[in-house]
Design a protein around this nucleic acid. Structure first.
Length: 221
DNA sequence: TACCAGGAGAAAA
DNA sequence: TTTTCTCATGGT
């Protein structure tokens, strides 16, 4: 993928939306919990589930690991897939405690930490990379559905490449820079929510053609 | 009413 | 190995 194209899209997204100040979460552990809960789920519903955890004084790896899946599922209900996510979060918390928590995990190199995350039940490539970038501040580019849709419509990718292929595309096309990866992914999500929807909701973005007319038209901000 | 949302794992082909 | 199915609440 053309490096100039990647830089151009970033510059235009940043100019249009400004810094997004991601990830919403007060602690690295809360970021990790949010990364699991947001799987195929709107963030507003994740916030409700996290609020339930805080209210129950359960936003803690030891307490979540000790809680029954049924009880944890009740707290996670607003985020959807609550039975699935209760099991995944308990698996994650058991792993997190067994490995010694944040300080010990921070000592691992990025590749090793990524391999360990991917071995946890319920942590796939996107969730692992969310955690690496936003909780451990590692230079890993997160690929999500918005990334595929936006860059597919721009004609820069086909959109059906496998995850690792796309991650390499972005990481080799951009300098290894945590603040850049952080902001770029946040802007992609913002633009995806804003105008680059699955179906046309406004005239700003072309949904009928393979390329995105919005970014082809240099007069747009 | 139908679609969509910051995926992942299991089952089926 | 690749594709399809399942999980679920809440907003638009």
């Amino acid at each position: 993928m053309a490096k100039a194209g990647l830089r151009m899209v970033y510059a235009r997204l940043l100019r249009r939306y400004g810094p997004q100040h991601w990830w919403p979460g007060d602690t690295p552990f809360e970021v990790m919990v949010g990364a699991v809960l947001t799987q195929n789920t709107a963030w507003v519903n994740v916030e409700r589930a996290i609020a339930n955890l805080v209210e129950a004084n359960a936003l803690d790896p030891a307490r979540m690991a000790a809680m029954s899946e049924t009880r944890l599922g009740e707290l996670l209900r607003p985020s959807g897939y609550f039975n699935v996510k209760a099991r995944r979060l308990r698996s994650f918390c058991r792993w997190y405690l067994a490995t010694g928590g944040y300080d010990r995990l921070s000592m691992l190199d990025t590749d090793d930490l990524r391999r360990q995350l991917l071995a946890v039940h319920g942590v796939g490539p996107e969730t692992a990379d969310d955690i690496l970038l936003y909780a451990f501040t590692r230079p890993v580019f997160v690929i999500d559905a918005y990334t595929r849709r936006i860059f597919g419509r721009l004609g820069m990718i086909t959109g059906d490449e496998d995850y690792e292929t796309l991650r390499r595309c972005f990481e080799t096309g951009l300098k290894r820079d945590v603040p850049l990866y952080n902001e770029y992914h946040a802007l992609i999500v913002r633009h995806g929510k804003d105008v680059c929807r699955p179906r046309p909701l406004c005239g700003e973005c072309c949904f009928a053609r393979s390329a995105c007319a919005y970014y082809r038209d240099a007069s747009n901000p």
